[in-house]
Design a binder for these strands. Sequence first.
DNA 1: CTGAAAGCGCTAACAA
DNA 2: TTGTTAGCGCTTTCAG
Lengths: 346, 346
Amino acid sequence: MADDIAVGSPAESEAVRASESVTIYDVAKLAGVNPSTVSRALNRPGRVNAVTERRIRAAAETLNYHVNPMARALPTGRTSIVGLVVSDITNPVFFDVIRGAEAAATRSGYTLVLTESEESDEREYERAQRMLRMVDGMLLATPRMSDEQITALARQKPVAVVNRLVDDVLSVIPDVQHGIAEAVRHLRGLGHSRIAYVPGPPLSWMARRRGELLAQRCEWAHIELATLDSVAPTVAGGRSAAVAVRDSGATAVIAYNDLIAIGLMQELVETGIRIPADISVVGFDDIFGADFTSPPLTTIKSPLREGGDYAMAALLGRVTDTEVSADGFDLATTLVVRGSTGPAAR
Amino acid sequence: MADDIAVGSPAESEAVRASESVTIYDVAKLAGVNPSTVSRALNRPGRVNAVTERRIRAAAETLNYHVNPMARALPTGRTSIVGLVVSDITNPVFFDVIRGAEAAATRSGYTLVLTESEESDEREYERAQRMLRMVDGMLLATPRMSDEQITALARQKPVAVVNRLVDDVLSVIPDVQHGIAEAVRHLRGLGHSRIAYVPGPPLSWMARRRGELLAQRCEWAHIELATLDSVAPTVAGGRSAAVAVRDSGATAVIAYNDLIAIGLMQELVETGIRIPADISVVGFDDIFGADFTSPPLTTIKSPLREGGDYAMAALLGRVTDTEVSADGFDLATTLVVRGSTGPAAR
DNA sequence: CTGAAAGCGCTAACAA
DNA sequence: TTGTTAGCGCTTTCAG
C-alpha cells in the first residue's frame, strides 16, 4: 500500500504561494489607484477610464490576482455557486442529470456544489438546508423529502426540482406520456395483448406517475395490463420479479426502470427463457449501459441530461432574473427500440 | 413543452424568508449576550458557561440560525469546501471517483464542488485555478494538464491527484501491477500463449502505465504480446479495433479499458466470432455495466471508488493537518473473472 | 467567563 | 472618472 502513494512537500516558492492572497489592495497599490477603482475596473468595464482600466488589468495580471469569491459574496449576497442535491449518487440515472446541470451551471459562470443524501429524507433536508446558505439557488433531483420541506427551502432561496412536481416550486418533469404511448403502440404492433408491469418504489412520485400513465394508456389501447408487486429499483429487484413475470402469462413486460429490466432479463435468460422470443422486455430511462446487454434493451428513454440542463438553466434564470426559453430543450420521453422486444410468443 | 413545466411563485412568508438572514447578532440579542459569545458557544463548546451555552443554542434553534459560510471564511481563511476536478464527466470511470470523493468529503463535514474540463487541458487549468480560491483543497482526478500546472496549483493550496503520479504532489494511484499479474496468470492458466493488447490514448499517464506493466508481465510469463494500434477509449474505439484483433492471431485480448472491451465484444460477436470460445476478452476498470454484457466481461477492476475516497481523505488530512491512515483502503487492482474469458481456442 | 473592538476582502453608496 | 467610507457576518485578540 505505502508504495502506491507518493507524497511530497512542494518547495515553497514565496512568489507564487503569495499569489493566493493577492487582494485588490495589492493591485490598487501597484496600479496607483484606489481599491474601489480596481473593483470597478474588474467588474464593470466601461465605468472606468480606459487607460486606467488597462493599467489595473495589467497589475492584476502580473500579481496573478483572482477575486476571493467569499469576500465578494459578503457584501453582495451572491456567491455564484449553485447547489445540486441528489438522493443517491450510486443511481446511474443521476449521472446524466449531474452532467446536464453541471453543463448549464458552467455555461452561466456558476460553480456547482454537489451533495447527496444516501436515500434518507431527513439527511436530504438537513444537507440541503446547510448548503442553502452558500448557494444562490438549488436544484433538487428526484428529491425524497416532503413537499413541505421543499416548499420551506424554496421560501429561502430560488429552488428548482427535476423529475417531480411540487406545487408552487419550479418543477421540470419529462413528458412521460409520450414514451409510454410509443411503447404500448410498439408492443401492440408486435401482437402483444397482455403485458406485465413491474412497478418501482410506491412512494416515489415518478414511480407512481409511470404506473398510472401506463395503466391509462393500456386501457385506452385495450391491452390487458398485469401490475405485479413493487420491487426495489435495482438489478437485484429485477431478478426477484422474474418468477412473477413468468407466471403472469404476459408476453411482454415493462419495468419501472432499466435496472429492474436488466435484472429481469438476466434472471429470465438463466431460467431458459428466450428474449424476445418468449418474452419481450422494455425498460425505462435508457441509462448508461442499457445497450450493453444482449439483446440490447429496448427502453423508454427519459431526457435526464436535458432535464438537468434545462432545470438548471431555468433555475439560474430565476436567480439572475433572466428569461430562459425552453427552445432547444425537448423533454419528451421516447421509445428506443433495440433487441429485447419482438413479436408476441403465441 | 409548456405543459411539462410547472411554475409558481411561492407565497412569501416573511417569518421563514427571514430565517435566511438570521445572524449571530439576532441570536445574541435573543439570548441576551454579546455576538462574540454566540460565536464561541457555537464553535467551541466548553469555552462558555454551560447554561449560557444552552440558552444560546436554544435561541439559535428558535431563530433557525445557520452560519453563513462565506462570512466565516473571510476571517478564518477556510471555507470547508473542497474541489474536485474531473476531465470528463461523461466518462463512467469518474462516476466512482466522484462517489468516493463525495463520501469522504461529507464524512469530514466538507462540501464538494465539482468542475469538469471537457477534456481540454487549458480549460482544466483555468477552472481549477478559479475554483482554487474558494476551496480549502483540491482533488484532481486523472488530470489532463501538465505536471508544471499541477505543481503550480499545489503551491497555492493543498492538492491531491488520483490516477496519476506527479512529483512532489500527493498522488494516489492504484496498484495496477497486481491485477495485471492476475489477468496474465488467469489467461495462461486457460492455455493462452499469445495475447493482443489494445492500448488507449498514448498521452495518458495511466494508459502508458498499463501498457508498460502488461508488457513487462507478459515477458516475465513468457507470453507473446501483440500490442495493436491505440484507439479512442470508447465503445466506438473498441469496435474499430476488432479487425486488428482478429488478424493478430491472438486467442485472447486485453483492452485498455472496459469501454474498448465492450465495443470490441460487440463488433466481434457481430462478425460471428464467439466469446470466449474463439477469443477471450479482458477489460480494465470494471465500470458500471461491465456485467451487463453477455457474456459478462472479465475485467481488471480498478479501485476507483476507494481511490477517490482515499485521495480525498488524504487531501483533507493535509488540509486539517491530521494524520490519515491508509488502513481500510485497498488500492490493489484485482481480476474479476466473469464469462468473457475461457480456454484458448486451439 | 464574557464583552468590546478590530479586521478578513470586497462592494456600493456618496462625495469630490 | 475616481476616492472615501461604511459595512456584509463572522472570528479573534484583548480587556475586564
